[in-house]
Simulated assay, not measured.
Amino acid sequence: MKKCLLLIVVIISVCIAFSQKGKEKPASQTIRLIFQNMVGDASLQTGIEYTNAFGEPFMVRAFKYYISDMQLQYADSTIYKTNLTPHLVNERDSTTKQLSFIAPAGNITAIQFLLGVDSITNTTGVQTGDLDPAKGMYWVWNTGYIMAKLEGTSAVAKSPGRQFSYDVGGYKYGENAARKIDLPVPAAFYQETSLSKSRDVIIKADVLKWFAGTHDVKIAEHPMCHEPGKLAMDIADNYEKMFTF
């Protein structure tokens, strides 16, 4: 009788162990960042006419920006720094609008990254991958990277071909156009009981913020920005506000 009871206890213990094992939270999770470029509430499309906050019509030809120094903040206040290399998001290349990586499991409360590249990268010289000058984001004449680019045409631009072109760069003191982005993650994004090993994170980037944010940047007054300085810093202050979760 005792042997039978012992056998039953062992069987129950094994069943409970296997049951709990199946409910264990994963040690890691796959984060897939999906970048959606926007014009206000509408998805950005090149060659389509839009209007900025000053009533200026414009069409986008190129929209690119670097994402680097990605890190995650968790509910327990720990910070996970990814080892991702600088990533170039290019509106005309849909494959660049997704970025996946493995991170520790847990509830993420904020996603932080640098819009642009740091000063060390800027002073290292010509590099490969997304930092290859062939990507059109490197100033050979100025030895540094363009942090973000917005180019197109506008009827109000007083320039040849009615073009506007904002190639925003600069890394030296007082001219640093890189901006730190801190995006809080809504609490509803995570559920404590969720055992999912994969998360899709949609990050929207609104080009309208380039013109109206911290500073007013009117195409009619400033159709070109191709060097570090005050205008580049004003645009950088604006595009710092373009991201939403």
Rank of each mutant, 00 (worst) to 15 (best):
K3I: 12
L6I: 11
L7G: 09
L7M: 07
A17W: 12
G22L: 15
A27E: 11
A27M: 14
S28F: 06
F35C: 02
Q36P: 13
N37L: 08
D41A: 13
D41W: 08
A42S: 14
S43L: 15
L44K: 05
G47D: 09
Y50M: 03
F54D: 09
G55C: 08
V60L: 08
R61G: 13
K64D: 07
Y66S: 05
S68H: 09
D69N: 12
L72V: 01
Y74D: 04
A75D: 13
D76F: 05
K81A: 14
N83D: 13
N83I: 09
L84W: 08
T85K: 11
P86Q: 08
L88H: 07
L88R: 00
V89L: 12
D93P: 02
K97G: 01
K97C: 02
S100I: 09
F101P: 00
P104I: 05
I108A: 14
A110E: 07
Q112P: 02
G116V: 05
D118M: 03
D118Q: 02
I120H: 14
N122G: 04
T123P: 00
Q127W: 00
T128L: 06
D130F: 09
D132P: 05
P133W: 02
A134E: 11
K135G: 10
W139V: 11
W141M: 07
W141V: 04
T143S: 13
Y145A: 01
Y145M: 03
M147D: 13
K149A: 08
E151F: 04
E151K: 09
K158M: 12
S165D: 04
Y166E: 03
Y166H: 02
D167W: 04
G169K: 00
G169Y: 00
G169C: 03
Y171W: 00
E175A: 13
N176C: 09
A177I: 01
A178M: 05
A178I: 05
A178S: 09
A178D: 05
I181N: 03
V185C: 00
V185H: 00
P186F: 04
A188T: 15
Y190Q: 01
Q191L: 12
K197W: 06
S198H: 15
R199S: 11
V201C: 02
I202G: 08
I202K: 15
D216A: 09
D216L: 01
V217T: 12
H222K: 15
P223D: 02
C225I: 01
C225V: 03
P228E: 00
D234C: 02
I235A: 00
N238G: 03
Y239E: 01
E240R: 15
F243C: 02
